[in-house]
Design a binder for these strands. Structure first.
Length: 950
RNA sequence: GCCGAGAUGGUGGAAUAGGCAGACACGAAAGCCUCAAAAGCUUUUGUCCGAAAGGGCGUGCGGGUUCGAGUCCCGCUCUCGGCACCA
């Protein structure tokens, strides 16, 4: 083995040396316009402030105990490659990394072992930092933190207080300080809920009124209580089966006083501003679906022989004439009030559920619905329900229609009540068929099915057809297209005082309390009356107390009646405090819930901008510089944010919400946190099970004619995640040991497009290793380690390849197509190898080194030094292609005869079409294919090809 | 069920302003070097017929538009992801 061959050991030496040097020199530090991270005037760093900026980050990781496997760094390497490229291409690049370190695993480990979560967390972070350093990730080392740092969560708490201290002004469509709302109440500009003057309200009453407006508020509301975990959960953390996403415990709806975030106030803006973002369409779609805005109308139906009325929400007010019955959610509050003593005469048996009177029918149905698990409801979509015995009056034609309760109507959406139009709604159709309810066609089918619903297989649903059978005193929709009919009827209802156009959302307010230890404490205390008071900014952060027992009290998983007991409640010395909140020292009780995991990740991208600022979460000048709106990003935000699709809804929606509140309150110039989002794919892996179904170590499985064996016995292959229990984990450290970090980086980038998931294949890594070896061997003498570069000029053909490569690599880099960029570099390298028998021409060696640098930075730095340069190449200009070498003198045209390539002709690149055509027809292979026939048509696509038709 | 994304050699993947399908890499085969092995290097490698020259067929399936379709249109199949009675 030659002593200076590029081996793993040689690579390890180079990598270590350059990582040390980058650290010593602070190579990747990005200057801020102002504050502690602003550069000294006149330095190279200061000059970079005049360049266009680029802010590139990944979704920061939760530092788990298992460390990184080869799947995790895919996005980190991609953003690193891009940011290294951009530094060379003339940008001031901010690239940073932190840790989302509050979370359950550390707490659960603490519960099991008694080891403080902070210790576990810090150890894991150290391990992650070590692994990331070893990969050569070029972060600004001054801009890093964990969400668990008191200096960080101080600001998380500060933001919480600003949100609590704000209300949403629906007219101005923005958040405003609560003091401005108080002023409106005081002046009488805004009436109090019960009309009394503000001054006459007691302190408790005022607090209650304001809580009805605050963007962070406490409410006694139905929440998802999970006794098995001992905590409440956000809607998003509950599976469709009604169980906890984590742990799969049953979840119950219970009324509990909890902190909420009024994210619903921002539903429209969160929806509308998606249009300004450069995000993958599926992610936008998921957010749109989650917000679930739908336009429609509320319509009030009187209850027959009764004083009450029921308001329904419908998106199809145009079908009001087709309403033949009404359905309330079983839990609807009006149900009990409208039940008659006995069934009306002639009620069909199927409607009563076999009960003797409406009250017992409703009670029985409710019981039956409650007994069904969510899963059973999912599986069985057959419509069930029961008649209430009451009738509603259709306001448009006075018709009496029966009122049912059924679980296909959800209490939490719209008004919890619907008008049923079985002819034009699939669900209503199914219900009507099951209960033999009448149907009336009020939208003429345009698919030839006829207008008699009794002959239909399903409802006719269309927004393009025209209305019919919809005329009564003073109102007719007949002949109107659906959209026009909606407008007409909505106006009519409003004029009659029977309804109004309205918008509803699926989005609910965000439950923000967790009964956990390892989270941000709320900066809230309660006085003797139970009133909440903010902890003054000057007393932040409210730090977590030391406790002996980190677990919330958990209960029998099925005990729906249990109540939360957070771990912080046990820290009695901490809970009970004496504070002076401006009216002298008093006793207070601290809030013992903590914030949910998402809190820190709702704003961390802002803290990288000014991580050491002690006076503000970020200096406005720094935020405006890095994230402010630009011509192409009109709502501002991070230039590139890379992370997994699993955060498509929750993290990204919550972070957008907080960002908008902070914008409204004047703290930020940007309206959106993340302008461009890219979802990196997953690196997955094969796992193998033996005949008993146990996993066997994947690395020892061998492939043998169409199957796989482990220790000679056949095993089954499955494809999925990497995990300890699947015995298929491959770590970046192993790859660094075997090949070096540069090889690993190149391999991860050349596996395929960033967005696509792909299987890990360790044995393929060697291809990237050979590539770097060829680069090294071309420029360095393997026997002496001396550079073997010559100054002889290269042939035109090589020079053209060089410039085509430069041009192509720049294009691919900008489009994040790193796999094809690497392929182009390999092609250039393979040419260099061919022409370097007597030494590598500098004309190719230098630009190749610079272009390889984003992918294999350590190797490139080493080669750059060997080429005779001082200092890091980090800020060397990326090569620029010369236009004149991008076009060849001659072009080879493929010639098609009847669609098949039959020959090729070489023609000067500036030849006109006639010349090209003549050359094509003169080619002997083409002539042979023509076999004497006269071309009917000859098509010359300039610079591309010739097509002859005979 | 609804919405979205996708399907290209043995494998990962190239090629979208409709213009030479399979770049680049892995694997495989043969060879060079070596006492030998490893590493490295060279050549071949979509498939079928053929000794070769050459030819036929080929981008999930079936149609269509076009001189020309992986790319556009219509109709399917399958895979993955999201939502799940949202009125």
């Amino acid at each position: 083995m030659p002593p200076f061959r590029y081996t793993a050991a040689l690579a390890a030496g180079i990598e270590q040396r350059w990582q040390d040097r980058w650290e010593e020199e602070g190579t990747f530090r990005a200057p801020n316009p102002t504050g502690p991270l602003a550069p000294a005037p006149g330095t190279a760093e200061a000059a970079r402030l005049d360049l266009p900026k680029s802010y590139v980050i990944d979704m920061f990781p939760y530092p788990s105990g298992a460390g990184l496997h080869v799947g995790h760094p895919l996005g980190y390497i991609a953003t690193d490659v891009l940011s290294r490229y951009q530094r060379m291409a003339g940008f001031n690049v901010l690239h940073a990394m932190g840790f989302d370190a509050f979370g359950l695993p550390a707490e659960q480990y603490a519960v099991q072992t008694g080891q403080h979560p902070r210790k576990t967390t810090d150890e894991n972070i150290d391990r992650y930092r070590g692994q990331m350093r070893r990969l050569g990730l070029a972060y600004d080392d001054r801009r890093t933190f964990a969400t668990t740092d008191p200096d960080f969560y101080r600001w998380t708490q500060w933001i919480f207080l600003r949100i609590r201290d704000a209300w949403y002004d629906a007219e101005q469509r923005r958040a405003r300080p609560i003091a401005e709302l108080v002023a409106q109440f005081e002046s009488g500009e805004r009436a109090t809920p019960d009309g009394r003057p503000w001054a006459q309200l007691s302190a408790v009453e005022r607090a209650a009124v304001l809580d009805g407006h605050r963007l962070a508020y406490r409410s006694e509301a139905p929440v998802n209580w999970c006794p098995g975990l001992g905590t409440v959960l956000a809607n998003e953390e509950v599976t469709p089966e009604g169980r906890s996403e984590r742990g799969n415990f049953p979840v119950f709806r219970r009324d509990l006083a909890q902190w909420m975030m009024r994210i619903t106030a921002y539903a429209d803006r969160l929806l509308d501003d998606l249009d300004t973002l450069d995000w993958p369409e599926p992610v936008k779609m998921m957010q749109r679906n989650w917000i679930g805005r739908s336009q429609g109308a509320r319509v009030t139906f009187a209850v027959a022989e009764h004083a009450g009325s029921v308001t329904v929400f419908t998106t199809r007010p145009d079908t009001l004439f087709g309403a033949t019955y009404m359905v309330l959610a079983p839990e609807h509050e009006l149900v009990n009030g409208i039940l008659p003593e006995s069934w009306p005469a002639g009620v069909p048996a199927a409607w009563t559920g076999g009960a003797t009177d409406p009250a017992s029918a409703v009670a029985a149905y409710r019981k039956q619905a409650a007994a069904k698990s969510e899963l059973e409801r999912q599986e069985n979509k057959e419509k069930t329900g029961v008649f209430t015995g009451a009738y509603a009056v259709n306001p448009v034609n006075g018709e009496r229609i029966p009122i049912f309760i059924a679980d296909y109507v959800l209490a939490g959406y719209g008004t919890g009540a619907i008008m049923a139009v079985p002819a034009h709604d699939h669900r209503d159709f199914a219900f009507a068929r099951a209960f033999e309810l009448p149907m009336r066609c009020v939208v003429t089918p345009d698919d030839g099915r006829g207008d008699d619903p009794t002959t239909w297989d399903d409802a006719f649903v269309s927004n393009d057809a025209a209305c019919c059978n919809s005329t009564h005193d003073g109102i007719s929709l007949d002949g109107l297209a659906v959209p026009a009919a909606k407008q007409r009827i909505t106006e009519w209802l409003a004029a009659q005082g029977l309804g109004e156009g309205t918008t509803t959302y699926k989005l609910r307010d965000w439950l923000f309390s967790r009964q956990r230890y390892w989270g941000e404490p709320f900066p809230i205390v309660y006085d003797e009356d139970g009133a909440a008071h903010p902890v003054p900014d000057s007393m932040l952060p409210v730090e977590l107390p030391e406790v002996d027992d980190f677990s919330p009290v958990t209960f029998d998983a099925d005990d729906a009646t249990s109540s939360p007991m957070p771990p912080l409640a046990k820290a009695t010395d901490w809970v009970h405090v004496t504070l002076d909140l401006g009216d002298g020292p008093k006793r207070y009780r601290r809030e013992t819930n903590t914030m949910p995991n998402w809190a820190g990740s709702c704003w961390y991208e802002l803290r990288y901008l000014d991580p050491t600022n002690a006076d503000a979460l970020v200096d406005p000048a720094n935020e405006a510089y890095w994230m402010g709106p630009t011509a192409s990003a009109t709502t501002g935000g991070v230039d590139l944010y890379v992370g997994g699709v699993e955060h498509a809804v929750l993290h990204l929606l919550y972070a957008r919400f907080w960002h908008k509140v902070l914008f409204d309150l004047g703290y930020l110039a940007s309206v959106e946190p993340f302008h461009r989002l890219v979802n990196q794919g997953y690196v997955q892996a094969y796992a193998y099970t033996d005949e008993r179904g146990f996993y066997v170590p994947a690395e020892q499985v061998v492939e043998a004619d169409g199957g796989w064996t482990y220790e000679g016995k056949p095993v089954r292959r499955e494809y999925g995640k990497m995990g300890k229990s699947l015995k298929n984990v491959v770590t970046p450290d192993e790859m660094c040991d075997a090949y070096g970090a540069d090889t690993f980086r190149v391999y991860e980038m050349s596996m395929g497009p960033l967005e696509v998931s792909r299987p890990w294949e360790t044995r393929a890594v060697v291809g990237s290793f050979r590539f770097l070896q060829r680069v090294w061997r071309s420029l360095v003498d393997e026997q002496t380690g001396a550079p073997r570069v010559v100054d002889t000029p290269v042939d035109d053909d090589t020079r053209r390849l060089l410039h085509r490569t430069i041009d192509g690599v720049r294009t691919e880099m900008a489009g994040l197509r790193f796999n094809t960029a690497v392929a182009k570099l390999i092609e250039l390298t393979n040419r260099l190898v061919q022409i370097s028998a007597d030494g590598a021409p500098r004309e190719v060696a230098e630009p190749l080194t610079l272009m390889v640098a984003p992918f294999a930075p350590h190797l490139a730095e080493e080669l750059w030094a060997l080429l005779g340069h001082d200092g890091s190449l980090t800020y060397q200009a990326f090569p620029v292609a010369e236009e004149r070498w991008l076009t060849a003198d001659a072009v080879v045209y493929p010639v098609q005869v009847n669609g098949k390539v039959r020959g090729r002709v070489e023609v000067a690149s500036d030849a006109d079409d006639a010349t090209v055509q003549a050359a094509a027809l003169a080619d002997e292979k083409v002539a042979a294919a023509l076999a004497g026939r006269t071309p009917r048509k000859v098509i010359v696509v300039s610079g591309r090809m010739v097509s002859i038709v005979v």
